[in-house]
Amino acid sequence: MSVTIDLQRFLARRSFVELSARERAHALLDKGSGKELVGPFDRQHSVWLEMQNIVPQEDDGVVVIHGRMDGKPAVVVAIEGAFQGGSMGEVAGQKIVCALELAKRDHERGIPTRPVLLLETGGVRLQEANLGLAVIAEIHAAIIALRPYVPVVAVIAGLVGCFGGMSLAAALCSHLILTRQARLGMNGPEVIEQEAGIAEMDAGDKRLVWSLIGGEQRAAVGLIDDLVEDDAEAVAHAVRAAFQARRPVQHRSEQVDFFLERLAAIDPEQVKDGAALRALWGKGEVK
């Protein structure tokens, strides 16, 4: 990366983070090719939110857009972080499960559909608790079943980030792309502060939080595949490139011996911050 900022490029870029889920999905597909499936007019919303006097949304916060990418069939499933924190309820989650399963069916029939997940989620929607958790287990199963056919590519752009059971979903994908604005972790900083105290995690300290679980840190220690600028074109480019790349021989979540060895080498008293982990796992400081 050049140190001098290309001013023209900087001014020309379109923020991906600021786009809605629907806009993000279209931005990744060939221009004008996207068609929404089970959109708001299908009125598939959460019955559980209504029972708790919360206004539902007619897409339940998940947008499924089928279209073309480099001329190939593709499906982009985008979570809307602005609705209930991108939380996974029954309907929202089942859209993701079913889209992944249909992509697998396509491959079994010789149709090379490319699956992309845009993850912007706090995890389980608490108002649907057990159905949210159950559908997340089904999302995991669907990703693992689809992966042998085609890379499952995930993007976490921010600002919500990706947490809870959905952070496991991100880790199960073949190719993981983050921006610097993104965070990827299992337990949100607020939850850790609440459960373990402010000495363990000061959730209000944004710099600390990003230094532990932010996109740049995750890239520096090799836990993700790409770190991209907050630029719709850059994200679209990285997603397309991920489908050109060979599928990983082993996903990180399959590299059990490797990570167990790494874990055994860690002294929990010493490794408490981003810099300490970079010293062990890092490939040098990233700019």
Binding site: L168, G185, M201, L212, L223, D273
Partner: peptide, 20 residues
């Protein structure tokens, strides 16, 4: 729930168990 767990990647560890 812990700082080290997040830093070192408990999300990946749990994903590995799910995967297996």
């Amino acid at each position: 729930y812990g700082r080290r767990e997040e830093l070192i990647g408990i999300y990946l560890a749990c994903a590995a168990a799910v995967d297996a």
